[in-house]
Design a protein around this nucleic acid. Structure first.
Lengths: 126, 126
DNA sequence: ACTTTTTGCTAAAAACGTCAAGCGCGCTAA
DNA sequence: TTAGCGCGCTTGACGTTTTTAGCAAAAAGT
């Protein structure tokens, strides 16, 4: 269909956002690579910023989010992992069986989880 | 498009749990396959995690339980083999600060939370 | 000027997760 | 029994992500 070198399109929004974040800090690609502890290579980050990757893995997004100091969920949203107004058709609650594997949480994990939950629910309101 | 996730239905709870367990260890599908001694193929594990398998065989669950170092009965329970209340005291498995107020989660919220937890845990490694 | 280093970037290969197709085994019905 | 269906499970792909190795141009020394 149509042409060929139609860059990203999907990852374009994410890419531009990432690029703006980086230039906001003045860091180079390799400096960001180091800042993530080699979690994200400079080459890969370049592909990311230019929209060549549609859906980077959440791990990558998490690393970048902490480097740029933006909420992880924001990057997740731009990458299309969570729909901005994902009020699930499935409004049914099943409160009782929520005794999930959310035992064995560290304090930090619990904190981050609740933070993330509030984000999700805030989204759902809209 | 359409990252709609209404798959499985039955194996959904088990699948998400398995997925969170795996990314908790940072292993890949093929690495888990090797870890089980080729007991569980990577493709099958993928189907498992995505809820495409209603009732995996107990020996598969047993292999995975030993790889992930979780009680075998727990996986059996999630797979629907044994009733949830047929377990010993729920007092404290690991004594962590685990109080989590997730009484009224929707199914989708619960799913997203567990996924997010996976990422957090994988990130926290090393 | 001429090196040397650093920057952003890219092509190719590797690794990843998942899908499609099929095999095998237990079931159920006649 | 035998024929068929259903479903767990494997194998072999396919498309995407991520790594590796390096490129040309700009920057910085000398």
């Amino acid at each position: 269909m149509s042409d060929e070198i139609d860059v990203g399109r999907k990852g374009e929004a994410l890419g531009i956002y990432l690029k703006s974040l980086r230039s906001g800090t003045g860091l180079t690609l390799r400096e960001v690579e180091d800042a993530t502890g080699k979690d994200v290579s400079n080459a890969y980050l370049s592909q990311l910023e230019n929209g060549h990757i549609a859906k980077p893995s959440p791990n990558v997004l998490h690393s970048l989010a902490s480097v740029y100091k933006v909420p992880y969920a924001k990057l997740m949203e731009r990458a299309g992992y969570i729909s901005p107004n994902a009020r699930s058709s499935n409004a049914a609650k099943h409160g009782r069986a929520a005794t999930f594997s959310i035992e064995n949480l560290t304090l930090d994990e619990e904190k981050e989880l609740l933070q993330y939950l509030s984000f999700v629910r805030q989204k759902a309101k809209s």
